[in-house]
């Protein structure tokens, strides 16, 4: 669109936040109070529909695009190690995003209200939390974070309509780290990423693709609720 990179980032994040809120209002509000599984299935379905629509738009379609960033091309040499400036920037921005999200959920009144709402809507109402409005903000925030993640990913994988499927890798990372824990998902992501890279290098062809799931199995055997998951023993 000819906008500078930073303006474009802000624009993309803001518009995705609105898309998230509209999706909540139209598609998810009607199932407020239903089990989480319903919501998961609806969002998966919505994802398929949106991908389908995007591939039909002339000029976007199934093409792959490159995203130019102010960081492109540069290389940093540290002794024998060669690092692409761009990838360093992506890692740095990811770390920053995680830190900001952590502070937001840990300390801000609205972040805490979001957690309360996701744990128990009925109780949240009685705490004076406007559950519907908070839900809408949760979806807005999720979509904005997804947009930011997409922008960070774009220089690495290029832009195409199926780039969201990398999210499937996030699932084992979240399981390994422990669902619902921000530090956990970072550690989980690092473990999965490292194991995958090492498996790709040292093990025969094909092991790279199953490595993540082997890690999930092993971790769940040792820590049933993930490394950073809360350990709750149910009384029988």
């Amino acid at each position: 669109m000819g906008l500078p990179y930073w303006a474009m980032i802000l624009f993309a994040i803001a518009s995705m936040a609105i898309v998230g809120m509209v999706a909540e209002r139209i598609v998810l509000r009607p199932v407020l109070g239903y089990p989480a599984f319903t919501v998961v299935m609806i969002t998966i379905g919505l994802g398929y529909v949106l991908r389908g629509v995007v591939t039909m738009v002339p000029g976007w379609g199934t093409e792959t695009y490159a995203l130019r960033t102010p960081f492109s091309e540069g290389i940093l040499k540290l002794g024998d190690v060669v690092l692409a400036v761009q990838q360093l920037a992506v890692i740095g921005m990811t770390a920053l995003l995680c830190f900001v999200l952590y502070l937001f959920f840990r300390f801000s009144r609205i972040g805490i209200a979001m957690q309360a709402t996701s744990q128990n809507q009925l109780a949240a109402y009685y705490m004076g939390i406007p559950v519907r409005r908070v839900n809408m903000m949760i979806w807005g925030l999720s979509a904005a974070v997804a947009a930011f993640a997409g922008i960070l990913l774009a220089p690495v994988t290029f832009v195409h309509s199926n780039m969201g499927f990398i999210g499937l890798k996030a699932f084992p990372a979240a399981v390994v780290g422990g669902f619902g824990s921000v530090p956990g998902s970072i550690v989980g992501g690092l473990i999965i990423g490292l194991v995958e890279a090492l498996a790709g290098f040292y093990l025969p062809e094909g092991f790279k693709d199953v490595a993540a799931y082997v890690v999930v199995l092993v971790v769940l055997l040792v820590w049933p609720s993930g490394i950073f998951g809360e350990t709750v023993r149910k009384k029988v």
Binding site: I112, Q115, A124, Y125, G128
Partner: peptide, 29 residues
């Protein structure tokens, strides 16, 4: 959500707590 603002609070027959939070966090909410 305005019921709380009026100064009405409630407990439930089948306990409705924020299960994945500590006692302190529940009270702080």
């Amino acid at each position: 959500h305005r019921v709380a603002e009026f100064g009405i609070a409630r407990t439930f027959q089948n306990i409705e707590l924020f299960e994945h939070a500590s006692v302190l966090q529940n009270l702080l909410i």
